[in-house]
């Protein structure tokens, strides 16, 4: 019955230009469902187009699994344009794959070769427990933000947006830090599973701006306290976080957080 075939090629003419097709060996971590304890399972995928995104390649695998009435591989994803921070997987040892400044959803198959073996694992950290297959629980990040990652202003209390001029460079540095998408790749990449890059990006984003400076000390103290309680490791300035960060957030933010925290501890007054 041709229903499935009919569904293909609906939106476009099949590609005529020389798009390469490749064969991949996938080694994917499965956990939950029939794979109680968690294990790697090998899959072979033919006819992978170089124009596919990495997640579209996994879609194709899942379609094949479903056709065989097997459970598809669970992985999280949403916007598929590198901004929501939902996708989270370690590809060949790199969170979000080997390309710099790229989320897994932006990674395209033209960076792989015919016959490659691709190992896909979940983010590994005690503070990010595995939920199923490649899906992990990153709610610790939410709790860290709740501990102080905001400016305390109620709706309607604001003065005119131009009332406080902010130097262009200052706004830009704040924006560099604010670009963090909260995906957790920094934790996944860090041999210590430290969340310092994430926390420092938020602290820097807000502390750099005059609006956020007011409660900067309190913020640094409370966010670090929550970070410690969540069971993340201690930063030893390895720098893998920066190297793997899909938004290329700088470890300089960590130095800024450290100095904020130190000054909070010694001059921040009573909590």
């Amino acid at each position: 019955m041709g229903l499935c075939e009919k569904a293909e090629g609906l939106f476009t003419q099949p590609q005529k230009h020389n798009s390469k097709k490749m064969k991949l060996n996938l080694k994917i971590w499965r956990e939950g469902g029939q794979y109680k304890k968690g294990q790697f399972v090998n899959y072979q995928l033919d006819n992978v187009s170089e124009h596919m995104s990495f997640l579209e390649m996994l879609d194709v695998l899942n379609e094949q699994l479903i056709a065989k009435k097997e459970e598809p591989v669970s992985f999280e994803h949403d916007c598929r344009e590198g901004i929501c921070g939902t996708c989270d997987m370690v590809i060949n040892g790199h969170p979000h794959g080997p390309n710099a400044g790229t989320t897994a959803c932006q990674l395209h198959m033209r960076f792989f070769k015919d016959g490659d073996t691709v190992t896909i694992e979940p983010f590994r950290a005690k503070a990010f427990p595995v939920i199923k297959d490649l899906v992990v629980d990153r709610s610790a990040f939410d709790r860290i933000i709740q501990a102080g990652g905001y400016i305390s202003v109620n709706t309607g209390q604001a003065q005119d947006g131009n009332a406080i001029p902010i130097e262009k460079g200052t706004a830009s540095r704040s924006m560099d830090a604010a670009a963090c998408i909260g995906c957790g790749a920094c934790v996944a990449a860090c041999p210590n599973a430290s969340a310092m890059l994430f926390v420092s990006a938020k602290v820097t984003h807000l502390a750099t701006l005059p609006q956020g400076e007011v409660e900067a000390k309190r913020r640094a103290r409370n966010m670090v306290k929550q970070m410690d309680e969540e069971g993340f490791g201690f930063c030893s300035n390895i720098g893998a976080c920066e190297a793997e960060c899909p938004k290329e957030i700088s470890v300089e933010n960590i130095a800024i957080l450290n100095s904020e925290y130190l000054s909070a501890a010694f001059t921040g007054g009573k909590e």
Binding site: W29, R124, P191, S194, F234
Partner: peptide, 11 residues
């Protein structure tokens, strides 16, 4: 830090 990384290492 070893503990924070969890029991299963990356393959």
């Amino acid at each position: 830090n070893r503990r924070a990384r969890g029991n299963i290492k990356y393959a």
